[in-house]
Amino acid sequence: MDEQKTTGIQRSSTRTKRVRKKKKNQLPFGIAVLVLAIIFGILLGTKNQGMPIFWITGLAFGYILQRSRFCFTASMRDPFLTGSTSLTRTVLTAFAITTIGFAAIKYGAFIKGLPIPGQSYVVPISFATAAGAFMFGVGMVIAGGCASGTLMRVGEGFTMQILSLFFFIIGSLWGAHDFGWWKLNVILKGKAVFLPDVFGWIGAVIIQLLIIAMLWIAADKWENRKNLT
């Protein structure tokens, strides 16, 4: 969708102009925090060489999420709640790009006979996956942000998300406490499925991209169907 500019729209004649208080310019504070963040990154590197990459990517993820108003919660919630699928489609696009990048990295390691990186993210599918995802879905809509969204909104100054982050941590601890039970009774019954094992490398990537494309089209159709009424 085109990015629409906020200027050039006819202002209602009844609109009374009010006097605004003078805005402060926060730009200097932004630059100051940025400089401090860079210094922190350098100091971090002297302590542990592996850490600056995490710091830099974290800052980048936070900046990108905030600047583009990216929201995984909205991508799942809006199709139902407001009928808008613009974020849903964008998230699907991100899935497609990342799928290609990840597949290339993983395949690169595979043909060299090296261990495939990131395979710990290919996890067993069981009732726990369904229950966990469902709980997460309910929670993120109510709390107004998922994990990354909550962190981002803490940075933006939301008190509500500071509270939900705290209880997210408590909930995580609770989940970790019960994890042994879930693992023994539920998760062990499940099976991890790495798509290239089933369809081959090329097949898995093609099938996944086709599914993403189909969902993208379905989302687009859903949005326009809603608009016609």
């Binding site: 629409q4 905030q66 108003r69 929201c71 809006d78 808008s84 933006e156």
Partner: peptide
């Protein structure tokens, strides 16, 4: 809310 600043006008 900075996200509403984008999704309300879009809608």
């Amino acid at each position: 809310h900075s996200c509403a600043m984008k999704n309300v006008p879009e809608w």
